[in-house]
């Protein structure tokens, strides 16, 4: 083995070791899922408790019904009637969120069209640093069919450790105890079907 080949082998070993280490530190098990288009890597955050934050009341009765909420007022995420909740942290001001709004609407429709997922997997959006007025404007502009909530003071956004929009978070709901976060993906994804398959696989649904 010549010197050049030794160096290449050594570099390869370092790269593999780094990858294994990165997965291990995120607690994600034996593999790091990569978003379907390969453009944006989504590393599993490991499962951890979803922050105990309340969301404001849904904007309308249809949203309330979709989420399975009975009372009025603010509500904790754990009250959402679902087995898995996908959270999109978005912003009214984010061009990438705007460009992919129709795609995320399609994701919602894809879930609702599948008998094995409807009612079990639900989708919500949280507007980072957006007022209720801005979230309403975004909903209207893009005809968003799933519930959107403002996070004007970035309370939940900061607790979730979100650094940019859009970010997608997967939560597995629990019969008892706090919901568990099992997925944290920054940037978005190109293929709804592949994303959904990955969410289902990681959630253990």
């Amino acid at each position: 083995m010549n010197k050049k080949m030794s160096c290449a082998l050594f570099a390869l070993l370092i790269a593999v070791a780094s990858l294994v280490s990165a997965c291990a530190t995120t607690g994600g098990g034996e593999e790091c899922p990569i978003s379907p288009d390969g453009a944006v890597k989504a590393m599993p955050a490991g499962t951890k408790d979803f922050p105990m934050s309340e969301l404001p009341p849904p904007a309308n009765e249809a949203d309330r019904k979709y989420l399975g909420l009975s009372g009025g007022g603010n509500f904790p995420v754990r009250q959402i009637k679902a087995q898995v909740v996908i959270v999109e942290v978005f912003s009214f001001y984010c061009p990438h969120c705007q460009r992919t709004a129709a795609q995320i609407n399609d994701l919602y429709r894809m879930i609702e069209a599948r008998a094995d997922l409807k009612g079990k997997v639900k989708l919500i959006g949280i507007g980072a640093k957006n007022s209720a007025f801005e979230v309403d404007a975004y909903r209207e502009r893009y005809h968003v069919p799933f519930p959107l909530f403002p996070d004007e003071e970035m309370v939940l956004t900061e607790k979730l450790g979100v650094k940019g929009t859009p970010t997608f978070i997967g939560i597995r709901m629990a019969e008892n105890g706090a919901p568990r976060q099992f997925y944290f993906g920054e940037g978005g994804f190109a293929d709804n079907q592949k994303f959904l398959t990955e969410i289902i696989r990681l959630s253990g649904l």
Partner: peptide, 14 residues
């Protein structure tokens, strides 16, 4: 282009 817009948002929010 898509990622360009995305990165802008990411940086802003950070």
């Amino acid at each position: 282009r898509r990622v360009g817009g995305m990165v802008c948002c990411l940086g802003v929010l950070a």
